[in-house]
Design a protein around this nucleic acid. Sequence first.
DNA 1: GTCCAATTTGTACAACTGTACAAATTGGAC
DNA 2: GTCCAATTTGTACAGTTGTACAAATTGGAC
Lengths: 225, 225
Amino acid sequence: MRPNLREALLRNAVTLFSRSGYNAVSLRDIAKASGANVGSLTYHFGSKAKLLREVYERHTVPMNARRRELLGEALRISDADQRLMAILRAYVVPAFVSSSEGDGGGAEFTRMRAVLSAEGNPDAQAIIADAFDETSRAFIKALADCVPGAPLGGLVWRSQFLLGSLYYALINPDRVTRLSGGTVDGNDREAAVNQIVEASYASFRSLGAEAGQSAAPLKYATEEK
Amino acid sequence: MRPNLREALLRNAVTLFSRSGYNAVSLRDIAKASGANVGSLTYHFGSKAKLLREVYERHTVPMNARRRELLGEALRISDADQRLMAILRAYVVPAFVSSSEGDGGGAEFTRMRAVLSAEGNPDAQAIIADAFDETSRAFIKALADCVPGAPLGGLVWRSQFLLGSLYYALINPDRVTRLSGGTVDGNDREAAVNQIVEASYASFRSLGAEAGQSAAPLKYATEEK
DNA sequence: GTCCAATTTGTACAACTGTACAAATTGGAC
DNA sequence: GTCCAATTTGTACAGTTGTACAAATTGGAC
């Protein structure tokens, strides 16, 4: 018997899936990374799909619970702009920071979600839709109250962009380092969180009724060519 | 001899890769979708990796050329805000709209890029870094001139978020439809382009020296828990 | 028609995949 | 120590993978 081989298998599964996707990682890869045999995986999880489901359920519940908790705190802020900022942090921070201690970190799991979402893995898609949409809806509602007059479409699209920004920051951090000529560290997760929050703060805030306050008349050229 | 089997193979490769990723799609899948035999793929392209390289080179050059062209037009606009908007459109539109006529559309290729980027495919990564970074750098430079006083880090991070938003809008459009309760169509690409441009316009504009004009004092709660 | 290079097909190969299951091992209860 | 259930290992299986290559087919030049 091993000191929690099962935990090690789950952890390594997240790491490998987040790095190369679902299909590129074989059960033997996961077993090897854990110093174990292939059979241990079918013993503990039954199948590759069930292993994935277990990984999701392991992280999803505490992460969304933490989001709800921080959302609750944010909603107690009366100033609309400061509340908006706090709501955005409540959504982003748990995706980057480990929810329960020692489970490998929220960032790695979020990166895995990003990859599996891109791969269109049907198992993952069902789980995601079930587990995350409700939380996302609660956030959109909270955001809407911070930006009176904002159209629903704008809110939903911007929440989509927020998630996409989150994902891509984790998937390809080296691009940030490269494009900045090395002056910015794309792997600095605290900086990433702040940048994401500030950028989406601006994008949500611009949806307000008094949008374009001193800004552009939004009369850009639309025609193509 | 077929009417351009080679073209059909390339087209179907993009479609299938963009749908399920690189590893999940076998050469036999691509052949079957094209009504051809596996051998035709090794004959025309030599290997799966070389096929991928060919797909990239097929779309990359005209897409970035179109971007540069639109960027050139945008740079002739004197008003900084309107120029900013035009630059963003110059980056986004070619990713959604087919560059050369009838090559399957830029959106499908962009979706494929998104998926392969997420999968961390090493072949794709090298090609992307080579082909796209130079164009991205030119855009960042152009954007910087629209927002005097903006720190480089803010510009680079926001250009990262722009790309992430772009990618995720193509990868998971159904989420938009779902979260909006069906009132917004996530597959409406024209709407997606406009939303992406407007959202990132706001995020870039907020980087300006006179940022937070009438806005929040940016003194949000930073501590964790 | 003949000819021939380009193309397409069919098939074979070794390597790897997820899964199943018998055998071996472990470690605590007694 | 014995015993036994839980765990881990080893191995076998059928199916799929990318690749290689000989054979068949194509279609235009002559």
